[in-house]
Nucleic acid binder design. Sequence first.
DNA 1: TAGGTATTCTATAGAGCTATTGATAGCTAG
DNA 2: CTAGCTATCAATAGCTCTATAGAATACCTA
Lengths: 197, 197
Amino acid sequence: MAGKPSKYDKRYLAAVDAAAAVFAEKGYHGANTVDIANLLDIKQGSLYYYFRSKEEALEAVCLQGITWQVSNLQELLDQQLPLARAIAELLRYNFQSLTDRADYMIVFNDDRQAIPLERRGRIREQSVAYHGLLEQLFTEAQAKGDVREELDPRILVRALTGLISSVFSWYHQKNELDMEKISEQYCQVFLAGCLKS
Amino acid sequence: MAGKPSKYDKRYLAAVDAAAAVFAEKGYHGANTVDIANLLDIKQGSLYYYFRSKEEALEAVCLQGITWQVSNLQELLDQQLPLARAIAELLRYNFQSLTDRADYMIVFNDDRQAIPLERRGRIREQSVAYHGLLEQLFTEAQAKGDVREELDPRILVRALTGLISSVFSWYHQKNELDMEKISEQYCQVFLAGCLKS
DNA sequence: TAGGTATTCTATAGAGCTATTGATAGCTAG
DNA sequence: CTAGCTATCAATAGCTCTATAGAATACCTA
């Protein structure tokens, strides 16, 4: 994977992409493998050259999605921005990936629970990491006196992630609100909501 | 329906309840009619005495869920409370129904899109009504000068409903946060986020 | 208590879907 | 040119599930 991507590697990624697209549109259970294969211009059975099962494809999509999120958040935190800037950037990035990689985000949000618990280990790991990083951000900001003391960082994490992920379910509908504006106003509301003063 | 509920009526409601429970747990596509029948202590085929199809059961659950929400919101608005009180009550009620009628809420949230568009009319109607009522609340509060002018009421509606519905996906996990506290802090954050000054 | 209605049961057709298997065409390196 | 490897195909076993139909039982009312 590190060196030159083989034809297999490229095709595998295309397969994950196709799975993401179909799962995002119809939901994991509602989707069928024929549709995925069609996107790749191969027959249904040929999919099993790349995946051991439909579920394995779901796992790959979810893991990819959350991994992107975590590494991006990590990168953002490494910049050590003040809370307000960090939140603004985070929202901007998330709303951006809603156009870029919406499929992965949607599948991760809506269908990860379709993976049986015993297979969800690596995904949970990333999820926990994501929440942990965010919680740390709030805790530190609170220690610095930027965030109101009475607010529980764990709840702020839930509120922020909830705010973000809820957008996944309606952004694609015909609506006149543009991402730029939503992102900006969500940011205003959330920051005014938790910053001190 | 208005007079004495017949045995059929009671049994029908029980069937909707059972469907809600099973759909909430496994998702519409992941659920099967055998599980629903088991909850009612009848055989799978007997379900079709009450529903023409599995999809019709989903429709009934979703419609019931959103209808409850709308009529409750309407009742709340009739009290003409100031915005802050209204939001607090709304959150309290929603988080309450998360323990009372979680199944209906979850199914409405996660699976209503599994109903084909042409059958979704009455549900959409209620959804639109719900959003409309909330939007009006914000618009009026803004006119009175309670809400910051730069905020778009439509976005506030999305933010608030997003905040609420996102809770549906994690409240049942083992976690130390109690509903009371979450409701209260969400309220604080959201209000501080949108109220003027 | 008989007759009729309401509710549930048994059995199953038939559709849709995943995953497997063995064959096959194309590509690559010697 | 050929042997071996890669990627795809065709065909299908076998499972799961919804929905239907006709029989059976419970329930109620006169």
